[in-house]
Design a protein around this nucleic acid. Sequence first.
DNA 1: TTAACTCGTACTATATCAGTACGAGTTTAC
DNA 2: GTAAACTCGTACTGATATAGTACGAGTTAA
Lengths: 135, 135
Amino acid sequence: MLSLSKKTDYALLVLTTLAQKPKDYVSLRELAIKKNLPYRFLAQVARALVHDGLIISREGSGGGYRLNRPARKISVSDVVTAIEGGVALASCLSHSETECALAVNCPLKKGMPSIQRMVLKTLTKKTVADLLAAK
Amino acid sequence: MLSLSKKTDYALLVLTTLAQKPKDYVSLRELAIKKNLPYRFLAQVARALVHDGLIISREGSGGGYRLNRPARKISVSDVVTAIEGGVALASCLSHSETECALAVNCPLKKGMPSIQRMVLKTLTKKTVADLLAAK
DNA sequence: TTAACTCGTACTATATCAGTACGAGTTTAC
DNA sequence: GTAAACTCGTACTGATATAGTACGAGTTAA
Ligand code: SF4
Ligand code: SF4
């Protein structure tokens, strides 16, 4: 089943939650308890989002996380990239990994990038704000 | 990394190959040898495609596989469905699985279907014929 | 100084993926 | 009629990815 990872799902959940209080620093532990989610796991997710500059953290008492830019400027693609490291529908489309051995004379190779682009475009168009607006 | 499984990649490879000789029954073993791919594994993939009616098999000597309908009528979405069982960007979008415990009061739940639809639309629009045409 | 936070890495259990093993059944050619 | 060239189907296995847990260090406010 083609799907987003649970981490990515959680990430979107965190982001939409933060988007509802854009100015406040929200405690992750509090969120974890309220939603009954594993805090340590969420923390990993949140840190990845910080690392990619999607959210900002403030340490110490009274700290927490808040969005680093407006929700409408955070695309699903940004989130997938932060958490999963990007989109590569075929392994020959991945920058990091070693290229597929079949690349030479592969009847797909030429056509795949177009699909990849279209999917990526979809994920780039959809923002956290859109997710909330659909409420 | 968001990606299609290797099985799906192989499936597309098989389909584009068959699309090049739409009338002939192509031996899978021959293809496997030519492309240096694991035959048994490919056979699993091919059978799944037969099962979903994307290709037709003929047993016995001189047999093999051929497309069951024109390449432009076989979408990437069809292939993903045949091999991976579908697309469910979030687990609450899956028909078969048990629904997510967070579904009640989840700020994402309302917005996810729209993304799912858009991705699905992309995958439905792209056909095996398109993949070949990009050659 | 302690309580409420985040940061960072290492570990573990489980599920999925990728592939192999094995044998049965079907059709054509000789 | 039998051998060769195919597909069919399930069961198993090894590797990798996912979904967490464990543990402790560092930071800030009251
Ligand atoms: S080269 Fe062909 S087979 Fe290899 S990953 Fe790209 S598309 Fe798939
Ligand atoms: S309900 Fe919310 S959290 Fe659960 S799967 Fe759907 S989107 Fe993700």
